[in-house]
Design a protein around this nucleic acid. Structure first.
Lengths: 195, 195
DNA sequence: TTTTCTTGCTAACGAACGTTAGCAATGGTA
DNA sequence: TACCATTGCTAACGTTCGTTAGCAAGAAAA
């Protein structure tokens, strides 16, 4: 029938990601998931321990990817801060577009993690934001970036980026690098025409 | 005991809004809602017809507010476009901060509306975004705004604003007008220091 | 060949879900 | 006084939920 590129467990994760994205975690039943996979609800438990385990894997795997991409992009101390920020933005967009569905789940469904996973997740997110904060802060200190309140700037910046899964489609006219470039420009240069 | 400032129905809406925000619509049970209101689950149905009716009211009421605020702010044809955009941004932020919980529900929980309400809601949101698109487009045409792709710019702009309910607290150090002003500045002028 | 792992089924568990019916107390209105 | 809208209760309905137990077929490993 189909080539088994993914293990059954990975297939479950993949299909669950799509369902969690569109219906939400709480509104997705194991029976819906099973139907989408072409199997019975009980059978899923041959591969996973619980529904939440799937969500846990989706969220934390993506957190890992965001961290890895950020390390690569921003931790080059020889580059000017503005350039490092641009690269961090582009990396973030790349991770988002690589798997939009998982990104959407990562951004919205983490609340359904129970403790202590939830707290753990929020700590990771906080650490990630701190990376952007630090970048903006040192840019402001160096006088190359305008960010009187780096925390505020970081929130706004990430907000613009994280809305992407709400509208991005791989079939759209804009390719991910295009999007990343435009977003970076708009955030760095603003909307107002310069004199 | 307590002064009855709100009708029981309004109290239900209010408490439900807070629960829908933190737990999500699907993960909030009528029994939880009842407990938070100090009553029994069945009793709620003396005031409402269904759980979804509450969500419907929350979402569409806020849509009305956004439209009203935008009309006030942006439909003054004598002002320069950039100023009208700034005013629209500030109005949007004001509606968001006036009721953060309801805003969060409006932004994230509308997916749980069933048809035809869901389609109706999306049409409203699309019309609202079109207002910003048009503003950005005419600014670009007039040469006062840099927005080569007004649709893209509108998405990014609203994204920055709509993330606000994720972090804003009325007890925070920034007052809503401050926030609005900073957001408008950051969006209009960008992060990079001007020559 | 025997064993073990993977994969999946059926049937069912107890719990929780949204909602309804029927009844009762209260307080304002006629 | 009689009436009626408001408000809330108890008890239960049918359904769906996540999950488990027990069994079985096939492939891979010993």
């Amino acid at each position: 029938m189909e080539p088994t590129l993914l293990s059954r467990k990975d297939q479950i994760d993949h299909v669950a990601t799509a369902l969690f994205r569109t219906r939400g975690f709480a509104a997705t039943s194991m029976r819906e998931l099973a139907t989408a996979l072409g199997m019975e609800a009980g059978s899923i438990y041959s591969h996973i321990r619980s529904k939440e385990e799937i969500l846990h894997r989706i969220c934390f795997r993506l957190a890992d990817r965001f961290f890895a991409a950020f390390e690569d992009a921003a931790k080059n101390d020889t580059l000017p801060v503005a350039d490092r920020l641009r690269r961090a933005i582009e990396s973030h967009v790349q991770v988002l577009t690589e798997d939009v569905a998982a990104s959407a789940v990562f951004l919205h469904e983490w609340r359904h993690l129970s403790e202590p996973a939830r707290t753990e997740f929020l700590a990771l997110r906080e650490r990630y934001e701190a990376g952007f904060r630090q970048l903006l802060g040192s840019g402001a200190a160096a006088g190359t970036l305008y960010a009187p309140d780096p925390a505020f700037a970081a929130l706004t910046l990430l907000a613009s980026l994280n809305w992407l899964p709400a509208w991005y489609s791989p079939e759209g006219k804009l390719a991910p690098p295009d999007i990343a470039h435009r977003l970076a420009n708009q955030l760095l240069f603003g909307l107002e025409v310069r004199a």
